[in-house]
Design a binder for these strands. Sequence first.
DNA 1: CTGTTAGCGCCTTCAG
DNA 2: CTGAAGGCGCTAACAG
Lengths: 375, 375
Amino acid sequence: MAQRRGTLASIAAEVGVSRTTVSNAYNHPDQLSPELRERILAAARARGYTGPDPTARSLRTRQAGAVGVILTEHLAYAFEDQASIDFLAGLSESSAGAGNALTLIPLGPSQGSEASPLIAAALVDAFVVYSVPHSGPHLDAVLARGVPVVVCDQPYPAAGSGVGESGPAYVGIDDAVAIAPAARALVEAGHRRIGIVGKRLFSDESREGTVTPEDVAEADMHVQRGRITGALKVFAEAGIADVPIVTRHFNDHASAIDAARELFALAPDVTAVLCTTDSMALGVLDYCRSVGLDVPGDVSVTGFDGVEQALGRGLTTVVQPNKRKGEAVGRVLTELIGEAGEGSGSSGDSSRTAPRIILPTEFSPGQTVAPPRAR
Amino acid sequence: MAQRRGTLASIAAEVGVSRTTVSNAYNHPDQLSPELRERILAAARARGYTGPDPTARSLRTRQAGAVGVILTEHLAYAFEDQASIDFLAGLSESSAGAGNALTLIPLGPSQGSEASPLIAAALVDAFVVYSVPHSGPHLDAVLARGVPVVVCDQPYPAAGSGVGESGPAYVGIDDAVAIAPAARALVEAGHRRIGIVGKRLFSDESREGTVTPEDVAEADMHVQRGRITGALKVFAEAGIADVPIVTRHFNDHASAIDAARELFALAPDVTAVLCTTDSMALGVLDYCRSVGLDVPGDVSVTGFDGVEQALGRGLTTVVQPNKRKGEAVGRVLTELIGEAGEGSGSSGDSSRTAPRIILPTEFSPGQTVAPPRAR
DNA sequence: CTGTTAGCGCCTTCAG
DNA sequence: CTGAAGGCGCTAACAG
């Protein structure tokens, strides 16, 4: 803070009234005569006093008027990813409606297992945790704050995430169910030899490249794990086993092309590639083009996410409602804040079962799946 | 806040030490024996105490660890505009480096001349005002907070914006200079009959459509005004007067097409259209195609901003450094916060001249400008 | 290493 | 419509 002249008390002394009256001049204008109010405001102006200190008020009223948002290791990355941008748009809309600001909390360059000190220091009434890798130090730090928390996407609810009674509230999609239509499209088109290309399954650097179903079962990146297990389940039900799975740490174009190369080297006979993200799928598309494979003539490809570019290229994919996720999170948040605000010590248990909101997704048929043909 | 068990004092009593010691256990671990510290932390854990209350600490230390960001009327809009997204990416990066969170402050649905109460209530150490229309109630409310302020893009510095000594710090580009290469490209290609299509010049609903140079001179949307005056200056120096100017309130595709239609109806003989934004230019391009005008064969078109799509389509335009603006704002901010933090009452004048940072822009020649030919 | 002493600036009963 | 009093929970000296 800068050079604020005076305080409520000093203005009160100046004008010759009590602190309460000055406070009322700002917060309850109907509690004093207009003329006295004007006299007070004038004195304040003269002294350079610009109204009650927000921090002191916040200490007294026990609310900050803001919700904290935990995004990625590198905050700037969140602004390069269309999904998180859409999420933020939805969240900002619904929290603005409730009169809350949005405090974006940078996690700093992932210093091992230490939670960011900014989490403990954030002046907020609640937290949103958006797609944070495993239940690591950050989530614990958030939970330790003792304010309402809503987790979006990741980590999944059940997985030993909560420290408290029933864990934090959750908003997300059912990845395993959501990806099924894409997997089914492949199966129904007649493919029997299918490969999977995905983003990393483990938050640490380990196990990049070809992974086994056992690896998948142990993965701590729940979203990716859910998508792959969902697809494998569909394949298994169709009697398709032995599905090669290739992953890459980053979800970018170059990684995707590289992963595609690895997959086709590993299993040259695959006639279809199911990808766990659209970015990966777009890379696979480009790899196929570069080696002269026609899509969907020679190879079928599916994605996941529903990013604009993928839809534009006619990718067969699953569209997920990122903006609506943000809106849903905002709604849950304001509800939770409301509860926490009032019920400070009335009847018994303050925390009912935390809400779990699973949003629907939509399969987009596209034009990148067709029956296999011999090559 | 929720059900936090206990306070520093209660833990201190529990363990049988002073509050300071407990405080030190959290904030200055090197100030007490590891074993005592562990004893304190254990007691805290048992009681469900999760560390010092951030608000109380903030009141005491007089810092919030966050900077407020004022974006648009409708916060969600900021996440649909690539320029502001890039700006936020840059800003988040540099403020994260300084250990500050970013508090995005929604302005609510522009309720006339009332400043958002969230501005007065925000728990922040400084403010960023990003491209806010005229010097309206919001900027005044921000300035009234008495904390460091950095304005980006708009409102322009000189224009009676500041209430204080030398006004707030400023980061932006010189729009009039920046657009000159685009205007010059048109002139040098031989065009004599040029129209301008731009986004709105007035923050209120007034004067949409065809505007006069007098209107331009009075406009309170400084950025747009700067671009148009810069272009007009180049044209005037080339002896080109009587330049038709058409504006639209919104910067979207439909508005641009509509504006193009109006321009060509008004001045069917124009051989070139200078646009003040890429979005407008893209719309003009599409309008031309729809009526069978070849670009740049029949009509030359220029834009401004350097959005990806425009660059992709080969538009002749000016690229401005949005992300770098954010980084620059962040740097100025941390500097300002530092100064405000220490110098609370030493030598004379606390505020030197506020920094003014004007970033360079880059002309992108593209392929949408060519010599005119008779139609 | 530990404790004592002073507030940071405000809001909210509760009486008048 | 106004005033008095009691903390909200913490930290920053400074002395032991």
